[in-house]
Design a protein around this nucleic acid. Structure first.
Lengths: 197, 197, 197, 197
DNA sequence: GATGAATGAGTGTTCATTCAT
DNA sequence: GATGAATGAACACTCATTCAT
């Protein structure tokens, strides 16, 4: 392995270690000592790759977030449209959560501990969703919402994801797990016919 | 003032000070030194009223949450029903937020820093909502959702509140402010007719 | 001992400890750990009395400098005038140095490690000297130097003190000691008749 | 360029870089990282030329000091004698300082950070001065000082140089500059007729 | 019950030095 | 000989908690 490759590897090693520590203990408890010990390098090595503790915390969500978006993009069948497409999107999100149990804390604590990264993550997320919904509008699946209103809807969808994950995708120990079917069903009912009949 | 009254007063003083500090600086930055200084008592005094720093953090959300629920209950016209009742609930929530700018941080950071209190707060919130929605079911305003599904809907409603507050109820400095009308409109459209036509 | 007295005592204890450590090891090697250990208090206690490491370093020279000036003032016979007064001043300085072996390092490293304190110390020193020389001018002991030139002379006198101390008042281990008589004699010869006959 | 020449060049490159860094930031802030970066070599390369950080710091003053002495020797007109020769020496020193703004810090911080080099530098300086003054004695320009006393005078002259440089040869930002004429005049008056008339 | 000085474990960060490539 | 990543000891500083007054 060349020097450059090894450096890249150490960088990733540290990032993965940080992801595990933050996912397990939260940002507040993620000390450099824990991260470097888990990565199997000396504390000083950390500072060859990151400027500060905050620096790696800021890079954590972009790193994981990219993975999540890729997963969802890949999981979504190309030809699926309408409400079914939205349902698939939600299930892909929960599937990713199931495979990456730490992602929930990394994502939702970021508002507090890595606000810039959190804001950027949301910007990207909202932008992607905006394009998806606009295509649905063009296809005639969505009617009667102007652009501003659609943005609010996007926040409602992201919000629902997050709270459903908080309530249903974790057992009493905070570990990840699958989401019951009736949850998805309720979500889809609201999106297709509203709450008030 | 009797000894007991004075003690009660100091207790409340500390709680209010903690609320202000946490609302302004967040849980992580809320040191005993800051809280006691704002309350105008010595650091040692703190430990006559609370077991530990975590103790007061755990009591903060119940204390504030009660205030919020009272505000909403009082604000809701008794005879309002149907979607209009839900709309009034949402606006009462934002009105409370506008008057208590620190509440957003206290509430949403609690998941990280006072998880027990956060869980209990949600239990109470969900319970209240469940009763409200069940009454709507009895009135025939909501149809086709079983009990489990209704719980999911409740989480979606709470989620929407929270994310809308995060996105629309704070200016770029994190200060509170009113929510634009089109946001409420979008929220109500989803609840009354869904997203997909 | 009252609380206040004890606090004052701890403050002085820390200052004395710092003086000893800096005098022995220099500013650069004066760690909080060394200072607090010598003072017999916990590391955290230090920060109840000083804002930072730099803070105590900045206070060291004023604290010691005051002692030195007092010593010289007290040592100088009131009625001594002319060159003999200057000779007595020099010897009083060396006597102080002999009793406070750490003072040399504290004073001369201050230019690097506590520049503000060093500048202020010199300001006070120069001011005092200016008054002394002006009185000698009035007495007719000094002639032919204008105010600007007198200031330069003061710097030459302070310089001589310092370099003589560096060369003659310390043994090979840096410990203090008395200054040989011929040194004083040479100093006085230059001041009374110059170098070039 | 031969291997040996290239090695010599790298050695000098490092020394010059160290001189610039120490002159600008002081010994305490002169890290290997800064020095090697300025020299344009890797950190590891440093240790092919110097044993340690202290090693290069110890070699800095001898390297610069030689330059200063050469400058003074070259500047001094051969046939100048008496007080005028001493005056020329002082002005040559300040001229060197003006051209090498970093030299002041390198020289005067050396007592703290490179004590061996500082002592050796003084030894050389004093030796040179001793020869100069002895020649003046032989020429009959100086009278009434024995050998020991002359050494003290030398220290007084070096001291005056240094303090005058500290006070008059630097602006408020620590940058170098010329010395006012009245300073030289006062210096010469003391040397030719003493302070006390 | 109120006080506030004392405590000490814990943290992020720096940097001279080493050594495999 | 040149490289630069890895090392780990050292340091200043914070803060929840205790306890004698």
């Amino acid at each position: 392995m060349s020097r450059e490759e090894k450096a890249k590897q150490t960088y990733t090693l540290l990032l993965e270690a940080a992801a595990e520590v933050v996912g397990r203990d939260g940002y507040a408890e993620a000390s450099i000592a824990k991260i470097t010990q888990l990565a199997g390098v000396a504390q000083g090595t950390f500072y060859n790759y990151f400027d500060s503790r905050q620096d790696i915390l800021d890079k954590l969500l972009p790193y994981m977030g990219r993975g999540m978006l890729d997963h969802i993009a890949v999981s979504l069948p190309r030809d699926l449209v309408g409400p079914a497409r939205e349902e698939a999107r939600l299930e892909a999100f929960f599937a990713y959560l199931d495979q990456h149990p730490g992602f929930y804390r990394i994502l939702y604590e970021a508002e507090v501990f890595a606000p810039k990264a959190h804001a950027e993550h949301f910007r990207v997320l909202v932008e992607g969703y905006r394009n998806a919904l606009n295509r649905a509008v063009v296809r005639g699946e969505i009617e009667g919402f102007d652009a501003d209103e659609l943005e609010t809807v996007i926040y409602m969808l992201l919000a629902a994801r997050s709270y459903i994950a908080m309530r249903y995708a974790r057992d009493e120990n905070g570990h990840a797990g699958p989401v019951p079917g009736h949850v998805i069903k309720a979500y889809m009912k609201v999106l297709t016919k509203g709450l008030f009949a």
